[in-house]
Amino acid sequence: MGTLEPGTPAPPFTLPDQDGKPVSLADFAGRWVVLYFYPKDDTPGCTKEACSFRDSHGALQAKGAVVLGVSGDSAASHRKFADKYGLPFRLLADTDHEVARAYGAWGTKRMYGKEYEGLIRSTVVIDPEGKVAKVWPKVKPEGHGGEVLAWLEAHTE
């Protein structure tokens, strides 16, 4: 990560959500957007993180923020994941990883001593003017929704 600096314009995107409906960054002009990138639907860390955003969702909404989860999974996979855990926010299918690349959330990862290309668990908060406000380049899934909420509470009225 390192491509995105706070104060720079957030890269525009349009991706399908879990119902196949297109979602664009431009749809949320004038609102805070919490864009969180996660590796895979229904895996232990990603489930913890999604449930943490679910549990903070009402408070995030009260701050005027929209939560969008992004991974390389298909819309159908997202639908199952959202239904299984009652996720109240939209999950976007970035199947070619173009948006992840634009946001610095795609790169070299290491597992069991092997290097491979993959999605890096990270979060970007975009301000109502469409600029990058805060970047978490490496996220611990546990309690991350609360961490983002605390940051927003400190930076909004």
Rank of each mutant, 00 (worst) to 15 (best):
E117K: 13
V66K: 09
E115A: 14
P6N: 05
K134S: 06
M1Q: 15
T47E: 12
K80Q: 12
R101N: 02
P141T: 04
D41S: 02
T95V: 10
V23T: 14
T43A: 12
V66L: 00
K131C: 01
G45C: 11
D42K: 11
P137F: 09
K138L: 13
A62V: 05
G30S: 10
S122Y: 07
V33S: 00
D127S: 11
A154W: 08
T47G: 13
S122K: 01
T108R: 13
W151P: 02
E147C: 02
T8R: 15
S122I: 01
G130C: 01
G72T: 02
W151L: 10
W136M: 01
V34A: 02
A75L: 07
V67Q: 11
E129D: 11
A59L: 12
P128Y: 06
V33A: 00
I126M: 02
Y103V: 09
D73K: 04
E153T: 04
K84L: 13
V148N: 05
E5I: 15
A105S: 15
K114S: 03
Y116P: 06
V132W: 06
F28K: 00
K114Q: 10
G143P: 03
P137W: 10
C51G: 01
K63M: 14
M1F: 15
D94V: 08
R90N: 03
Q18P: 05
D83V: 00
L91I: 10
L91S: 06
G69E: 06
Q61V: 12
M1I: 15
L15H: 13
G64V: 07
D96W: 04
D27Q: 14
A105I: 11
M111E: 10
L4R: 07
S77T: 09
A154T: 07
F37R: 13
V33E: 05
S52D: 15
E98P: 01
Y38D: 03
G86F: 11
D73T: 04
E157Y: 08
K109Y: 05
H144V: 13
E115M: 09
R31A: 04
Y38T: 04
D17G: 02
W136V: 04
T156E: 12
I126G: 03
